[in-house]
Simulated scan of single mutants.
Amino acid sequence: MSDAVRNREFRAIWIAEAQSILGDHLTTVALSIVVYGRTGSPLWAATVYALTFLPALAGGLGLSQLADRFPRKTVLVVSAVVQAVLVGAMAVPGMPLAPLCVLVVLARLAGAPANAAQNALTREVFTDDELYLRSQDLRGITSNIAMLIGLAGGGFLVTSFGASWALAIDALTFLVAALLVQLWVRQRPAAGNPDDGWFTAVRWVWGQRRLRVLLALSWLVGLAVIPEGLAAPLADQIGAPEQAVGWLLAADPVGFILGTFVLSRFVSAENRKRVMGVLATLAAAILIGFAATPNLPFALLLLMLAGAAGSYIITVGATFITWVPNDKRGGAGGVYRTGLRVAQGIGVALGGVVADLVGSATTAIALAGAAGVVLTIPVALSWARVRKADSSEKD
């Protein structure tokens, strides 16, 4: 990973992304506290929380294609500045709830083309597959660390200094991101053809069998996030203290960070492709251990192991972007990211429904693991055939 950091362009993109993610999670915490404090309604708090990611789903398929139609550096800078203005407006003390919701939606929509441009531009910066994958490992590790710091520090910052300060810091992170990219990232021409249809990249992706298999591997993450949605009832069921909810939420990302480090340090890019199906199956199988209604230490261990195995998703995403032509990477990346977010949202919702029906969070998680194994095995076998065909074509 140190080789990737030596690249000046990547350093700018990497640092800009990491501190923006930290700021975004400060905003997530701030909005939850502000809305619940004003309304006293869990429904309103949950609704505004949903608004922090739902626009990204809509923007992922549509606005992400701007990353192909315009120079990607320009997309990153403009998007960051727009988000800084919108989040800055959210930081105005006493902002009414309705305008606040509108600003949340607009800010997240503005971020959709930036996410697509960032992924596509990183692939342009690194033409070597091995080095590119290492750069994605570093992004994955720092993103999860920034998320943990943002969520942990957000509550302290809001309760100590007020929500406006957290929102103002988030706005500042976007300005810093725009400045870093403007100063250190080289300007490149637009990769796509402006005359192409708006959803050309989307249609192209669906026409490629090997990309459909990679999408299926990424969607399986939807089952892996079910424990996150059930953290509170899980803690209650296993007799853990209330503060253990935070530990249960942190266990998966901590495992993910460790797993990503191990893969990046000890496994080559080609071998990582070889074991993707195995790791995807293992990530689901580990959750079956919750059928034994584990105590808190064992539950944390299971979640960390599942998170470590789930780090295969970085190789999935890197392979997906690599196999897409440069002129379609913005739109195709939007398809990938949108599918991932939808799968996660559906997974959390289904986990809640099942837990309510069976009356047990541990049983619901174990069932998710069993379903994951059943669904993953055929996808893993399809991936093995795709990888074999790809290797034959190279030979």
Rank of each mutant, 00 (worst) to 15 (best):
D390R: 11
G352V: 00
I365N: 07
L287G: 00
G334S: 10
L66F: 13
T159S: 14
L157V: 13
A84C: 01
W206Q: 01
G192T: 05
A98P: 03
R274S: 13
A368N: 01
A168Q: 05
V205D: 04
R139L: 14
A384S: 14
R329Y: 09
F266Y: 14
N144F: 07
V181M: 05
I13S: 10
A244L: 10
L133Y: 07
D170P: 01
S264C: 00
G333D: 02
L57K: 05
L97A: 08
A349E: 02
A191L: 01
F320G: 03
V213F: 10
L26R: 05
H25W: 15
P325G: 08
A98H: 07
V358F: 07
A58N: 00
T315S: 15
M95Y: 08
V254M: 14
R38M: 12
G111E: 04
L248G: 06
V158D: 07
I21E: 08
L31S: 09
R265K: 14
L367E: 06
D236Y: 04
A380P: 12
V34R: 11
D24E: 12
L302C: 03
V348M: 15
R108G: 07
V176K: 08
A308L: 07
A120V: 02
P241T: 08
V374T: 12
V324A: 01
V353A: 15
R329G: 05
P71Y: 13
R186D: 11
A240R: 05
T362E: 10
Y49F: 12
V158K: 05
V275D: 01
I365M: 06
P71V: 11
P253A: 07
R274N: 12
L223R: 00
A120Y: 05
Q65A: 11
I288L: 15
P99V: 01
R210S: 13
G62N: 03
C101D: 06
A146T: 09
V324W: 02
A152N: 04
V78H: 02
A250S: 10
R123D: 06
Q19N: 13
N119F: 04
K273G: 15
V85T: 12
V81C: 05
L183N: 00
T47A: 14
F174Y: 15
A280K: 00
T122M: 15
S79L: 10
A232C: 02
L51S: 06
V373D: 07
T376Y: 09
R337Y: 09
S268Y: 08
A269R: 12
N144Y: 09
F161L: 14
L180T: 04
V185C: 13
V358N: 02
C101Y: 11
L183K: 13
P241D: 10
N7Q: 14
T142F: 03
